[in-house]
């Protein structure tokens, strides 16, 4: 058993919140630059130029990439040979969020109840997904998720006979319906199979995969290529102002499912595809 002090988790999560909100991941930055070369629409090119400059300004002036510094989504992989000491794991993560959002001058965007809507003023609680894995480390991914793109995400329980065509139709419909709202060019995560909630979590994990890396399963990799093509044929374009580049990537994650089911969840991630992974 390896002991990890809760205070270490707090400190590292706090730092990760600040970094995630101000430093655009290199793969996303490079994808924006490639999109700038591919785009034909004059207004689309203007938008992509702004987004590239925006990422540079955020980094050099230590100001958040986007004013929506998100709901703090946290994925935790806990090695089964690890014991957290000196406090609870969830408390340690939330304390880190509290610290990071205050010290990093990030926006506090969480309300305590969906109906009474009183701001908690420290961006807690985070939404935390945990998994037990082999080993003696804790791996934490902090992914602030903006409301504009999350609001346009969707899930549907298709029937098995709808198959691949049904999946493509649903993803394209979701992107078209979202238009300008989720801040395209998007990173699209598609969760396929499992159950309603399994598909949704897979769609979130899919968004975190590095841009340009295909799924290792050839069936899913093929679907990713077809989906990217179909989404970019919609003409939604950068900022929804028309153009070729509606998505920078479509990542698919799949899981076995019931003989009766074909669950599909689509997470739309804005171009500020922020995430930081740390290992303790």
């Amino acid at each position: 058993m390896r002991d990890i002090d809760a205070s270490v988790i707090t400190r590292r999560v706090g730092e990760a919140c600040i970094e995630a909100c101000t430093v655009l991941p290199a793969d996303v930055f490079e994808a924006l630059k490639r999109a700038r070369e591919v785009e034909q629409s004059p207004v689309g090119i203007e938008v992509l130029d702004q987004l590239i400059e925006n990422a540079e300004v955020a980094l050099s002036e230590q100001v958040p990439i986007c004013q929506d510094t998100g709901l703090t989504l946290v994925f935790v992989e806990i090695g089964q040979d690890v014991r957290v000491v000196g406090g609870g794991l969830y408390d340690a993560i939330n304390e880190g969020v509290r610290l990071g959002y205050e010290e990093g001058f990030l926006r506090k965007s969480i309300v305590r109840h969906p109906l009474d809507r009183v701001n908690t003023c420290d961006n807690t609680p985070a939404v935390i997904h945990t998994e037990i894995v082999p080993g003696n480390e804790i791996r934490i991914t902090v992914a602030p998720k903006g409301g504009g793109s999350e609001n346009m995400s969707a899930a549907r329980m298709l029937t098995p006979s709808e198959g691949k065509a049904g999946v493509i139709k649903f993803v394209v419909e979701t992107v078209k319906n979202a238009g300008s709202n989720p801040c395209p060019p998007l990173v699209i995560g598609v969760g396929l199979g499992g159950t309603l909630e399994k598909a949704a979590i897979l769609s979130k994990k899919a968004v975190l995969r590095e841009i340009g890396k295909s799924n290792t399963n050839p069936v899913d990799a093929r679907l990713e290529t077809e989906l990217l093509e179909a989404v970019n044929a919609t003409g939604v374009g950068p900022a929804g102002l028309g153009g070729r580049v509606t998505a920078l990537a479509v990542n698919v994650e799949s899981y076995p499912c019931h003989i009766a089911s074909l669950p599909v969840a689509v997470t739309l991630q804005c171009h500020a595809a922020r995430h930081v992974t740390l290992v303790i």
């Binding site: 230590q62 100001v63 958040p64 004013q67 926006r107």
Partner: peptide, 22 residues
């Protein structure tokens, strides 16, 4: 339609882009 991030000391404002108008 915007809700800025808090300004760091010495800055006028934090990040301040548009939110969804709908």
């Amino acid at each position: 339609y915007a809700g800025p991030t808090p300004a760091r000391p010495g800055r006028v404002i934090g990040s301040v882009g548009p939110t969804t108008s709908g």
